[in-house]
């Protein structure tokens, strides 16, 4: 197995607050890795560091063995790290098709609508994105991530606000994606995580509390106390 992503001593302080603290983390090619943890644990901050949206206070990030710590976000995207926002961030005033075309780097052109088909939005291609229902906007966000054809797809709480039926489709979709891409999934929905993840990393107050297979993590007493018990 080859390591796709690795962080060494990764930290981020906001003033006095250690949002991410000395995290050593590895993801292997082809795996679906879930990152879970209570609200405010530092999950979004952690993946923001990986995607380059914010700069770390300390530590290094390696992607395919290359140090990308100093690279700006757009350059990391070009290397294959795709990020979907926890707070939906799409082009509200542009058509659904143009949103995906921008992601595919073929704006204004005839980009493939395949990513839309994969999330089940193909029939809404000409609609203005801002007029989509909230759940559909989340799916468009995922479709844009797919259109980037990334090596690592980071999904920050993608199922937040989706209906049960949509979540079922989403599980199928992630399985399908995971056949050729690596997925880093932040999720609060435990049944979904248990079903999809190969391995789970538990973050708590900026540090890794536990890591392992879904069964191992589920059985871990510390995790029970910090997270599963309250969730």
């Amino acid at each position: 197995m080859t390591v796709l992503l690795e962080t060494r001593g990764l930290s981020k302080n906001f003033g006095g607050l250690k949002a991410v603290s000395d995290v050593n983390f590895r993801v292997e090619k082809g795996e679906v890795r879930a990152v879970i943890g209570p609200n405010g644990a530092g999950k979004t901050t952690f993946v923001s560091l990986i995607s380059g949206r914010i700069a770390p206070s300390a530590g290094t990030i390696l992607f395919e063995g290359e140090d990308v710590t100093e690279l700006p976000a757009y350059a990391r995207v070009q290397k294959g790290i795709a990020y979907t926002f926890q707070i939906t961030s799409i082009y509200q005033n542009l058509s659904v098709a143009e949103n995906v075309a921008l992601a595919a780097h073929q704006p204004g052109g005839r980009a493939s609508l395949e990513p839309l088909a994969r999330v089940g939005l193909a029939d809404r291609a000409s609609q203005i994105a801002g007029t989509l229902a909230y759940g559909h906007q989340r799916l468009l966000e995922v479709a844009m991530g797919l259109a980037l054809k990334p090596k690592l797809l980071i999904l920050d709480e993608p199922t937040q606000g989706l209906s049960d039926a949509e979540i079922d489709n989403f599980i199928t979709l992630v399985r399908d994606v995971a056949r050729d891409e690596t997925v880093l999934l932040i999720e609060h929905n435990m049944p979904l995580v248990m079903e999809l993840a190969h391995r789970i990393t538990v973050l708590d107050r900026g540090s890794i509390l536990a890591e392992g297979t879904p069964q191992e993590v589920h059985a871990n007493a510390a995790v029970q106390a910090a997270y599963l018990g309250t969730g």
Partner: peptide, 26 residues
């Protein structure tokens, strides 16, 4: 306006963060 540049400029106007996170050098 009809080139790739024109479309990316509109994208920046509409949502700068998203555009950077799609791999464009904003």
């Amino acid at each position: 306006v009809r080139s790739k540049i024109g479309h990316v400029l509109v994208a920046i106007r509409e949502n700068e963060n998203r555009t950077a996170m799609l791999g464009y050098d904003v």
